[in-house]
Write a protein that binds this DNA or RNA. Structure first.
Length: 295
DNA sequence: CTAGGATCCTGTCAGC
DNA sequence: TGCTGACAGGATCCTA
C-alpha cells in the first residue's frame, strides 16, 4: 500500500496531539538563537521577540499547537492541510504532521517556510507545501483574544453527554458532516475523523442535523472520542509510522481507517462496497448499507 | 443569526 | 511529449 504521491492527509486533532507529545520531550528548555523566515506569508507577528527565549511549555487547542516561551509570548502553529514539523538534532529526527517524503529528506527542503534554530545546534523546521498553515507570535492578551481560539468549541472529551446535540441545534438545516467539521461545534474534527466517526455511528454523512435524535448524536460523540483516542494512542502520521524499520512505506491509515480512502473496497462490517461522494464540499467516504438515509 | 460558495496555494493527474 | 484545467481541502470571507 503505502502513501500515494500527492495525496493529502490533513493533520487533525490526534496528529497535532502526537506532535505536541513528541516535541515536548525534545524542545522544552531549548533556547531560540535564530529564526529564518523563508516565506513571509507563513509567519505572523514580531519576528525578533522570541530570539534568546526558551520554550517553557507546549499546549494544544483543537488543531492548533501552542508553544509558550520564557518571556510570556506564545507561538501558535496551525498546520492546516499540508503543514509538518520536523525536529532535527544531529542524527536524531522527529517528524510529524502531513506525511510525505519530506519526513526523511535533508532540511530545509523546498517546502520549508520557517526554520527555528536553537542554541545547541538543533533545528525545528516548519514545512508547508500549500502555504495555508502559519506560525503566529502572540502576547498572552492576544492569545486570549484570538478570534479562532475564542470561537473554538470544547475538546470532544471536555463535553458533557448531550452537549454535542445541544450545540448542533444551531445548525439544524445543514448536513451532519458539515456540522461536525465546524470548529465552533466541536474542536478538532477534520475530514478523516468526520468520515470515520459517522461510519462507526452508522450515520449517513449527508443526513440533515434536524433528522437526528439525541441518542444518535450521543453515539456519534462517543465514536469521535473513541476514534481520536485510538489515533493518539497509535501515534498517527509520524515518521516512524510513515517509514517502516526496513525503509518501506507504511500506511498510518491502516491502523484505524474503516472507510477513509477505501472507496471500492469491502466494508468490514457488512461486506458491501465503500463509496466516495461529495458532502459539505469535501470528499466523503461511507458504506451505503451501514449508513442509510433516514427521515 | 445560519448556509453555502469563493478564496487561498501547490502539486498531481487526466485529457487532448 | 507537453500543455491546460480540474481537483484536493481548513478556515475565513462574503453574500443571501
Amino acid at each position: 500500500m503505502g502513501v500515494v504521491k500527492g495525496e493529502v492527509f490533513m493533520p487533525e486533532l490526534p496528529e497535532v496531539e502526537t506532535i505536541r507529545l513528541g516535541l515536548e520531550k525534545l524542545v522544552i528548555e531549548k533556547k531560540l538563537s535564530g529564526l529564518e523566515i523563508l516565506c513571509e506569508k507563513s509567519f505572523k507577528g514580531d519576528k525578533d521577540i522570541l530570539i534568546g527565549q526558551k520554550i517553557v511549555g507546549l499546549e494544544r487547542r483543537g488543531k492548533a499547537l501552542l508553544i509558550e516561551w520564557s518571556n510570556g509570548r506564545w507561538l501558535m502553529i496551525h498546520l492546516r492541510m499540508t503543514g509538518q514539523l520536523i525536529f532535527v538534532d544531529g542524527d536524531e529526527r522527529f517528524a510529524a504532521g502531513h506525511p510525505d517524503e519530506g519526513f526523511c529528506e535533508e532540511m530545509p527542503n523546498r517546502k520549508t517556510r520557517v526554520v527555528f534554530v536553537f542554541s545547541d545546534g538543533s533545528h525545528l523546521f516548519f514545512n508547508d507545501q500549500r502555504k495555508f498553515g502559519f506560525c503566529s507570535v502572540l502576547t498572552q492578551d492576544e492569545l486570549r483574544e484570538d478570534k479562532f481560539l475564542k470561537k473554538l468549541a470544547p475538546e470532544p472529551w471536555a463535553m458533557a453527554e448531550g452537549e454535542l446535540f445541544e450545540r448542533l441545534q444551531k445548525h439544524r438545516k445543514t448536513t451532519i458532516k458539515a456540522a461536525i467539521l465546524d470548529q465552533t461545534v466541536i474542536a478538532g474534527v477534520g475530514n478523516i475523523y468526520a468520515d470515520e466517526s459517522l461510519y462507526a455511528a452508522g450515520i449517513w454523512p449527508a443526513q440533515k442535523v434536524e433528522d437526528l435524535t439525541r441518542t444518535e448524536i450521543d453515539g456519534l460523540w462517543k465514536e469521535i472520542i473513541r476514534i481520536m483516542r485510538l489515533a493518539i494512542e497509535s501515534g498517527g502520521s509520524t515518521m516512524k509510522d510513515y517509514v517502516r524499520a526496513d525503509g518501506t512505506r507504511g500506511d498510518y491509515l491502516d491502523k484505524f481507517a474503516q472507510v477513509f480512502r477505501r472507496e471500492g473496497r469491502v466494508c468490514g462490517r457488512c461486506g458491501g462496497v465503500i463509496l466516495k461522494t461529495k458532502v459539505a464540499g469535501r470528499g466523503t467516504h461511507y458504506c451505503p448499507n451501514c449508513q442509510k438515509a433516514k427521515g
